[in-house]
Design a protein around this nucleic acid. Structure first.
Length: 183
DNA sequence: TCTCCGATTCACT
DNA sequence: GTGAATCGGAGAA
C-alpha cells in the first residue's frame, strides 16, 4: 500500500478511536542534519477529557493543560519526574481535552526511552503533527492486532479510572511490556 | 512564596 | 522488591 502521512482528520476524533488506530503506524523523526528515524508504534494510551480523572486536564484548563484543548494533531510534550518527556498527540476538536500518549515504538518499550531516542523535548510542544517538519506519522497499510489493557501509572486517579482498558498494544509485536511498574 | 508530587527509569539489595 | 534522581505545575498559604 502507498505510504501516506496522517492528516488532521485522522486526529479529529475521539481519543478512544485514534489511540488503537495509531498502533502499527510509523512514527517519523527528522533531524536537522538530515538523519531520520522511523519506528512502528507498538503501544499507546488514551486520555479522554475532563471527566477522565487520569487525564491531566481533569482539573480544568490551566497553562499546562491548555495544549490539550487545542486543535487535533497538536503535539503535547510533558516533563514527568523532572527527567522524562512524555510524547502525546492531541485529538478531538478544540476545547475537548483528548490526547493519546505514545508509550512505545520499535525497540523502545517505555515513553521515557522513546522520547530520549527521538530527542523529543519541550520545543516540540504545541507544534502540529501534520504541519511541522521534524516529527510526523505515516500509514503504510499495516494492520495491527490490537490488544487492550488497563493504563499504567495513574493509580492516583482511582481504581475506576486506572482500570479502564485504554492502553493499546500490538499483539503481534508483543515486545516486553512497558517497564513501568505494573500494579 | 512554599510544598507536594507525578502518564518513569535505573541502580542496588 | 525498593528507593533515588530531579523539576515544573498546581494548589495552598
Amino acid at each position: 500500500m502507498k505510504i501516506k502521512k496522517l492528516n488532521t482528520a485522522f486526529f479529529d476524533r475521539d481519543a478512544l478511536l485514534v489511540a488503537p488506530e495509531l498502533v502499527g503506524k510509523i512514527l517519523v523523526r527528522q533531524f536537522e542534519d538530515g538523519q531520520q528515524i522511523r519506528l512502528r508504534i507498538t503501544e499507546t494510551e488514551a486520555y479522554c477529557g475532563e471527566e477522565d480523572k487520569g487525564c491531566h486536564a481533569s482539573k480544568g484548563k490551566t497553562p499546562r493543560t491548555e495544549v490539550m484543548y487545542m486543535e487535533a494533531g497538536t503535539i503535547y510534550i510533558y516533563l514527568i519526574y523532572g527527567m522524562y518527556q512524555m510524547l502525546n498527540f492531541v485529538t478531538e476538536k478544540e476545547n475537548l481535552p483528548h490526547a493519546v500518549l505514545i508509550r512505545g515504538a520499535g525497540e523502545f518499550n517505555g515513553p521515557g526511552k522513546l522520547t530520549k531516542a527521538f530527542k523529543i523535548t519541550g520545543i516540540l510542544n504545541r507544534k502540529n503533527i501534520c504541519t511541522n517538519g521534524e516529527l510526523w506519522i505515516e500509514d503504510d497499510g499495516y494492520k495491527a492486532d490490537i490488544l487492550a489493557a488497563p493504563r499504567i501509572g495513574i493509580d492516583y486517579a482511582g481504581e475506576e479510572w486506572a482500570s479502564r482498558p485504554w492502553r493499546f498494544t500490538d499483539k503481534l509485536a508483543q515486545i516486553k511490556p512497558s517497564s513501568a511498574k505494573l500494579k
